[in-house]
Write a protein that binds this DNA or RNA. Sequence first.
DNA 1: TATCTGTTATATATATTGTATAACAGATAG
DNA 2: CTATCTGTTATACAATATATATAACAGATA
Lengths: 124, 124
Amino acid sequence: MYMKIDFNSDEALYIQLRNQIIYGIATSQFQEGDNLPSVRELAEYIGINMHTVNKAYSILKQEGYIKLDRRKGAVIAIDIDKMQAINDLREELRVILAKAICRDINCQDVFKVVEEIFCEFERG
Amino acid sequence: MYMKIDFNSDEALYIQLRNQIIYGIATSQFQEGDNLPSVRELAEYIGINMHTVNKAYSILKQEGYIKLDRRKGAVIAIDIDKMQAINDLREELRVILAKAICRDINCQDVFKVVEEIFCEFERG
DNA sequence: TATCTGTTATATATATTGTATAACAGATAG
DNA sequence: CTATCTGTTATACAATATATATAACAGATA
């Protein structure tokens, strides 16, 4: 259980936390059915407040990455609506690719980076 | 000069404004050397405060999309450091692709969306 | 019963966001 | 010179977001 949190980042702690868990799922570090630490446990481990972890978990639940249960705690449960996911992806890519195009980055350049990141995640 | 601003969005106005201008550059609506409206003019046009526009412009300057001049106002001036831009791109793609991988979206799926967006921008 | 879950409720402090009013300095057109 | 256009800076204010702190509740479990 490794969590890379940067307290000096301009990114909110609960967003960093959410992203770290998403990385964990993408790299198969966390798999369907796996338990995440309890909000109190993870808060203690990282050294932040319980509510900050709770907020991250709530968002992960809302976004369809985990299910929350009073008995078992937080459990990885991916809600795969691929059509919806591709539409979300398109929206997010639009801004990023606009920036890239401004810098003369072409389609092939992007493909290369995308491929690299896929390899990076597949290796874990 | 078309600016699509959503007052109900959870995205800050100055960020939306920045993105709209970046879209404008990516679609060649704005070209190197072109003048943007003055902060007061654009603020008036959209119906928001001058400082909100000023913040958007300041960020665009800091990120290397425009230059600010007391004489000419805001002028499109792209700072192309392609190496740096690709590294920035990689960082931004990492989170987005992690989310995609969680939803069983593969490399080819992403390529398709990227290609679509490139076409979309090229058409303007 | 004691202890573990997530959940909810308050309260507080700080930072961010957006607005408002005002003034300043450089440049420019009349 | 004057009036007017730039971006820039300063100050103040309200609303919201972020993070912490303390506490309690309800369900599940050993």
